Simulated assay, not measured.
Amino acid sequence: MSKADVLEDWGNHLAQGRRRSPHTVRAYLAAARLLIERTGAANWASLAQLNTAQLRGHLASRRQDGLSNASTARELSAIKSFVKFAREQAGLAEEGAPRLRGPRIKKGLPRPVTPDDATNIADLVEGMAQDDWVGARDRAVLLLLYGAGLRIAEALSLNGNDVPLGETLAVTGKGNKQRIVPIIPAVREAVAQYAALSPWPIEPDKSLFRGVKGGPLSPGMVQKAMARARIALGLPATATPHALRHSFATHLLGAGADLRSLQELLGHASLGSTQIYTKVDAATLLDTYRGAHPRERDD
């Protein structure tokens, strides 16, 4: 078995067996390729025999390449999964994944935007586009993130079968997990406007959101459109498309939504992922207090 065969099997396992996203597959394949090149282990038997010291040495060399703590933690996760799979392929499944501890990562709080900023961003993105249909498209995508809490990949995965939108939408998220999200009138109207203006036919099994050449719209184009609007509005670099999803969660929590309901709406696998928004909401309240309380103001 060659290195190419090993990587092909690994990629197929991730994409088809584990249903990982294309981005994750690329990252995990890159980590596996580097491990093979640096250790010389190029088949399942030799990969299965890699010990903790060898893996730790490989990660140390990656740190010397300039890898950050967060990137090292991600690469460690990829390597552990790869070696575990190698041991399964070599008939050593009982040994499981190698025991390695990665660097401690301090999680920062998500940076939500205000409701007014979210609306202004969507409106400005529409107004700055060169073509009306492109502006309607980008506005519809951003409102799906802010108005329905979708991830950008989830919004761009919609196809012609999903329109016209109803009061709810079935969304397939991470881990192929499906959830139902409510769709407010403003989001339905924005998507309907885009569908009416699009020069490309809305076909059942093809991407709803298209690029200017007719292919599926890429996340990068949405990110660029939002970056232009963010700069024009004088907002910080943290005002990204994903920040709109954070804002959806934070604003719902501030309005009284409970954590379990929010977990379902966001498609989080664990409640722990949702609980971070309680800290965001507390931070927002504190900022408001500091700005309003007479003893906290400079004047």
Rank of each mutant, 00 (worst) to 15 (best):
Y277C: 04
L262W: 08
A45M: 11
H242R: 07
E88K: 13
E189L: 08
A45R: 14
L217P: 00
R74K: 13
Q49T: 09
G220W: 04
S261Y: 07
L50K: 07
D117K: 04
D116H: 13
V280E: 01
A129Q: 11
M128D: 14
A73F: 08
K279H: 15
R26N: 08
L208Y: 01
R62K: 10
E167V: 09
A239L: 06
V191G: 02
V181D: 03
A170D: 06
D281C: 05
M221G: 06
L233V: 09
D131Q: 15
P204V: 04
E203L: 13
G175F: 04
Q89P: 00
Q130E: 15
L67P: 01
A45H: 14
V83S: 10
L253R: 01
K84P: 05
D132W: 06
A70E: 12
A243N: 07
T238L: 03
A249C: 10
L262C: 06
N43Q: 13
K84T: 10
G291M: 04
S218Q: 12
P22E: 11
P103C: 11
R210E: 04
G214C: 02
N12P: 00
G214S: 00
L197H: 04
H23P: 01
E189C: 00
K3Q: 15
P112A: 05
L165K: 05
L92S: 14
V171F: 00
L100E: 09
A41S: 13
R151V: 05
P294H: 02
T52L: 11
V134Y: 00
L67T: 10
V280Y: 06
P216W: 03
L143P: 02
L47V: 11
A249Y: 08
V134T: 13
P110Q: 05
A60P: 03
L109W: 03
T274V: 12
S71K: 06
R260E: 05
A41M: 09
A232E: 15
I183K: 06
